[in-house]
Design a protein around this nucleic acid. Structure first.
Lengths: 162, 162
DNA sequence: TCCATTTATCTTGACGTCGAGATATTATAT
DNA sequence: ATATAATATCTCGACGTCAAGATAAATGGA
């Protein structure tokens, strides 16, 4: 009988006509994600980064040398709008963690690249980030974790298939 | 080999020193939650509500007659800050979906109550919302869904136990 | 060649959120 | 009784996000 169960019990009282079974799944998903996001942000902030900044720097870092992508590619990877990406890039550029140069081949395009400073920073933060994720998932027994992974993978595939 | 698997493969290439197994779980969790949130918002917006507004109205509705709670109780239920709740309540009050009255027993406190209009609205929206959740989870086979629920419940309990 | 269309990015305005601090009220200790 | 602490809510400023539209550059067809 956790927080979500109590919510479901309230709905069953007030709206017995509704089958609120799925609401339990959605509710735990959201609540869990919120908690985890809060914990992950701690590490970013300890290094002066936001989740948004981490997202961009990590995408550039894992893309491999020369750690350069177009804004469009970053938008695609991170699932945000172009306005959001412009804003993220402006802040990261101001912090000297990335550079922006116009593509000589296509005057419309930009090349976003990690600076040495940005590379150093994201490499350090990612190491801590992964350790943080290990810590946060440690409370979930391996078998349950495997089941969770199966469910997440299947559901995500179903949702993205549409 | 989904989107998240590709990210993990990139990290394995670039940072083979890191054990990024948990990142797969975190990544699918976030990606799935983002997709689902987008779908849920469709229903709210079809009725002129935001997710924030729905959250408050639903909390009041399921609390039962007289559909009245203090801002503090709403903050507790919805896991937002006091500033956020004040902002939400102002908007809902302006839309005539709730009323705010100072508690006669305690001059510091307020009583937030659904108006008849708010009650009507949230009852209609919740019905559609639940149907929407049924639709979104339909792509996940029952056995996988049961495993997912087990994992979510256990992990949430572990995270909230700290 | 030249105009219309498409593409890539940026701009703007509105909203939701948080954190820190302000204000008002009540509770408590002396 | 009074000062202090605790509580409930609100205010303010900053940030991240989105949607819609603006700008600039490349492409393609007549």
């Amino acid at each position: 009988m956790d927080h979500v169960d109590r919510i479901l019990a309230q709905w069953n009282n007030e709206r017995p006509d509704l089958d609120v079974g799925p609401m339990g799944t959605f509710g735990r998903l959201k609540r869990l994600t919120d908690h985890l996001a809060t914990e992950l942000v701690r590490v970013y902030e300890a290094h002066g980064l936001t989740a948004a900044g981490f997202d961009v720097l990590a995408t550039l870092r894992r893309s491999g040398a020369p750690y350069t992508l177009s804004p469009s590619a970053l938008i695609e990877s991170t699932m945000v709008t172009s306005g959001t990406m412009t804003n993220r890039l402006c802040r990261l550029e101001a912090a000297a963690l990335i550079t922006r140069q116009t593509d000589p081949k296509d005057g419309r395009g930009q090349a976003v690249a990690l600076t040495p400073l940005g590379f150093e920073l994201i490499d350090r933060v990612v190491t801590e980030h992964v350790a943080n994720q290990h810590r946060l998932i440690a409370g979930l027994p391996p078998e349950l974790r495997a089941h969770l992974d199966d469910g997440l993978r299947a559901w995500l595939a179903a949702v993205e298939a549409e």
